[in-house]
Design a protein around this nucleic acid. Structure first.
Length: 486
DNA sequence: ATGTTC
């Protein structure tokens, strides 16, 4: 493979493609991963991440996390920080169509032994109460005008309306409401698609999972306890979803606008039209930033209402209140965003627009913007594996400075959905998983087959690469026992 | 990811 001949090994887990690799690169591209992950990575990822390295304002490196795979414009797993005072751009392809697709992790004080006899009942009821699948709608009835308030207020709106606890907000990135969301910057079409979608899971790789923290999978007892994982074989709930059709429409709207003005108005030439962008400091760029933040808030609200439903389901099945069941949030992380952050580059503080597309923010100890209770230990990082293997809770580290404090977000696909459909059958997979102790319900057999564990990279290898590279540190590995699949 | 090809 041609790229392997020119890629430079910086360390066991950091690999670099120099600016000489491709004409127009402003910075080198750095890919994180063990040698195995790097060798297995789709060649298209190298092409995409070096395209990203040509974008105006890109600072230090175009980065790809160990779970990187082919995506729209940017690879999924891509991180790019644009200097907004040096003509840096904002690009929807660097954020993803599913704006603020993310993960939420919730504890319980139940053990595996207590939950096991109820797992079918729990999953079946969750399947009913948290609608999944393409085009699904939620139980909340609101007007389009009210929905515009929701996308400006995020999870705060939910808690104020009885869908959650006050503490949930403190334990959500951006406290569940990113500042600067402006509903005047989103289209009626986006509102039409989104206003019935709060409290719904979606499809694809979105899921809601019941998991167990087995004693042997706790890597740091002190940190685990600080995050609320302290009972042997403790049961937790992890879920993954985003801004549904709403975020998709916001991204689509602005991609069209950017394609029109990018070259004609701003003279920006790009190698791939999927990298459509606009200067951050422009009318179009700022409008998208404010509209995209509505997508971020819609997603926080979505996960907040889903958490409310999960608490109701557990409460009904176990006949105790959610408070009594210890159903506290560990944290909520965003996977698909661009955020204005200050980072030190070559000894100087710079204001950067950090695009993270299929990458998790991983702030280290002492940094601003993380919950008070975690201030001295660092930000929790929630990484979902495939439904068959396992997931992780990690913590941000000082070494994250190398990646603008970003790390992996999941397993990362190795096989296309089409090929996965031909390799597995959903019905058979469900039976096999049940025999292995994972009860799964899905809205579609086809969708289930697409998400087979074998279609993904080895999550343990991805996590090991992230830890060896020093950009995050393992705390707990979780094993799935029940799953609602979108 | 997505009213899975406006």
């Amino acid at each position: 493979m041609a790229t392997m001949d020119v890629i430079e090994r910086i360390s066991d887990t950091v690999w670099e493609l120099p600016v000489s690799y491709k004409e127009g690169m402003r910075v080198p591209a750095r890919i994180y991963g063990t040698e195995k992950l790097i060798r297995e990575m789709d060649e298209a990822v190298y092409d995409q991440i070096t395209n990203v390295a040509t974008l105006p304002g890109i600072t230090k490196y175009a980065l790809c996390m160990p779970d990187g795979h082919f995506g729209y414009g940017f690879p999924i797993g891509g991180v790019a920080a644009m200097d907004v005072n040096e003509g840096g751009v904002i690009s929807p392809g660097g954020i993803g169509f599913d704006i603020n697709c993310g993960m939420r992790l919730v504890t319980s004080n139940l053990t595996y032994g207590e939950v096991k006899p109820h797992i079918r009942e729990l999953v079946d009821l969750l399947y009913r109460q948290v609608p999944a699948g393409v085009g699904s709608t939620g139980f909340l009835k609101m007007s389009k005008r009210e929905f515009r308030e929701v996308v400006e207020q995020g999870a705060r709106w939910c808690v104020r309306n009885g869908y959650g606890w006050k503490e949930d907000l403190e334990l959500t990135e951006e406290s569940g409401c990113i500042e600067g969301a402006d509903a005047a910057k989103i289209s009626d079409k986006a509102v039409d698609r989104g206003f019935k979608q709060i409290g719904t899971l979606g499809s694809g790789n979105h899921y809601l999972e019941i998991q167990v923290a087995h004693r042997e999978n706790i890597f740091d007892e002190e940190l685990a306890e600080a995050f609320g994982i302290s009972i042997p074989d403790q049961v937790v709930i992890m879920f993954h979803c985003g801004s549904r059709g709403f975020g998709h429409q916001v991204a689509t709207d602005y991609l069209q606008i950017f394609l029109k003005v990018m070259d004609s108005k701003y003279g920006i030439k790009i190698l791939d039209r999927e990298l459509a962008c606009a200067p951050f400091d422009s009318t179009e760029g700022r409008d998208y930033f404010a509209g995209m933040k509505c997508g971020i808030n819609m997603s926080f609200a979505n996960r907040q209402v889903i958490l409310h439903r999960i608490r109701e389901v557990f409460s009904k099945v176990f006949g105790r209140s959610a408070e009594d069941l210890g159903m506290h949030m560990v944290y909520d992380v965003a996977h698909n965003t661009a955020k204005l952050e200050c980072h030190k580059v070559d000894g100087r503080e710079k204001q950067l627009l950090v695009h993270r597309k299929g990458a998790t923010r991983a702030f280290g100890p002492g940094m601003g913007g993380i919950p008070e209770s975690y201030k001295t230990i660092g930000q929790p990082v929630i990484i979902g594996g495939s439904m068959e293997t396992g997931s992780y809770l990690l913590v941000g580290t000082p070494g994250g400075a190398e990646t603008f404090f970003s790390t992996a977000h999941g397993s990362g696909r190795t096989m296309s959905r089409t090929k996965a459909r031909k390799t597995w059958r959903g019905e058979k997979l469900q039976r096999e998983m049940e025999a292995r102790g994972i009860y799964v319900r899905s809205t579609s057999w086809r969708g289930l087959a697409e998400e087979a564990g074998g279609a993904y990279k080895d999550i343990d290898e991805v996590i090991e690469a992230s830890e060896l590279a020093g950009i995050s540190k393992r705390v707990v590995r979780f094993t799935p026992i029940g799953n609602v699949k979108g």
